[in-house]
Design a protein around this nucleic acid. Structure first.
Lengths: 233, 233
DNA sequence: AAATTGTTCTTCGTATACACTTTGCCCGGA
DNA sequence: TCCGGGCAAAGTGTATACGAAGAACAATTT
């Protein structure tokens, strides 16, 4: 009965391939694996303490997500975001996140707004404490939350992937402009709370413009090219 | 197993997992595997004449692309696009393809425009001949071409994936509104040729609105839900 | 009829094997 | 010294087998 439920919940360990994928993404974003670095299956398998199969499956997804490039018979290397693709990413994000802001404004419940305000408050505290790492975390959490509130799973999933890449580029450039952007976040949440879709969209756009400008200031030349092979139909 | 490919040119031989992925996508889009249908690894391996490993890797990517849903310890089933997510897809496509149209207008070379016009001409012929299958093909080719001309790989890749899903939904609904949409295509290409980004964006929007409306007319109730599990960081 | 048990199907992960390619190193010759 | 050839190591791509664990369903018991 109760024990059955507990067992079920306890026995809830997600597949190794997913853990590997998450760890791999994190390692790449954090710069533990640098762009261009070769990722042999054996090495990854050892790093994560698993066999080759989960690693291979994780690598395929990481490739589809653009974190690694796989060259047939030669293996995987960490992808190299170029400054060209950074601009492209922001162009797409503008379209997507402004839509998310609009939808969020139109659909947000009181609880949703409260959750956003809570994140804002935590962000303010972390900023005061100069805890940049935590600020970055909360930054992500806020954006992701807005995407979720938008209620459009496609939008959410795609923008999330893009967001991860942006994080990656930022970390590589060692740019943490987070503190400065917090004021813009407040504007954005205010707009969402107001329920005014147009206003929320404008706020999102303004925020992204600023972020984009900051990204370019800190972008020291391209790293190479991201190709992405991905075999589409 | 697969002695069909005795190509001495090993370098050209693309990995089985990619062939499987392509075939799987095609089978799902063509309705050979129907939404909700269970896809056991053994069966797919047998269908495609390969071992389970390539199948597993292809399945992970297909999951990331939203074509299948994988339930841990239970296996993969073909995803079920619901009318809810159809609307969501169009909402995202509007943002993305209108951006693509704008960029294409701003960047298209004479050769690009010529290629588009050639597709338009072929489409007109196929429409006259009532060759609906070919019309659908050219339809895709045109949209994909515009994405490519936009020169933004992120935009291109994401919109392409969305487009595949739209195709899928259309085929399931057996809706081929293609002939009617051809006039809109001409408007769009004209706008791109003019180099007027605003105008191209408006044309793309108009086209998508019409397509969206048509999709809903032919959408006979939802099939279920597409979830997508995908473990993000 | 409800609860329990058992059986079967399948996924998940590991391990192993091997063909084939790519890479890199060594070596002998100019 | 430099070059080029050739050979061995490394690593991917694929197949196969096996055991553990979970889920679904049937059978059995209460």
């Amino acid at each position: 009965m109760a024990e059955d439920l507990r067992d079920k919940l306890g026995a809830r360990h997600l597949p190794l391939r997913d853990q590997v994928l998450t760890a791999l993404r994190a390692a790449i974003i954090d710069g533990d694996y640098l762009p261009g670095e070769r990722l042999t299956e054996d090495r990854l398998a050892e790093d994560f303490g698993v066999s080759r199969n989960p690693v291979r499956e994780a690598l395929r997804v990481a490739e589809a997500e653009g974190f690694v490039v796989i060259l047939p018979r030669r293996g995987a290397v960490v992808a190299s975001p170029s400054s060209g693709t950074i601009a492209d990413m922001f162009a797409v994000r503008e379209r997507l996140e402004s839509l998310a802001a609009r939808l969020a404004a139109e659909r947000a419940t009181a609880a949703d707004v409260a959750a956003l305000r809570a994140l804002l408050e935590q962000g303010r505290e972390a900023t005061e404490k100069q805890d940049l790492r935590r600020v970055a975390e909360l930054n992500s959490a806020l954006h992701l939350r807005i995407l979720q509130i938008s209620g459009n799973p496609w939008l959410s999933s795609i923008a999330k992937a893009l967001y991860l890449h942006v994080q990656w580029v930022f970390r590589l450039g060692a740019a943490e402009r987070a503190p400065h952007s917090w004021a813009e976040h407040i504007q954005l949440v205010d707009a969402i709370e107001s329920g005014d879709g147009d206003r929320a969209e404008r706020a999102a756009l303004a925020h992204l413009d600023a972020a984009s400008a900051a990204a370019f200031e800190n972008a020291e030349g391209g790293y190479g090219t991201v190709d992405g092979h991905r075999p589409q139909a």
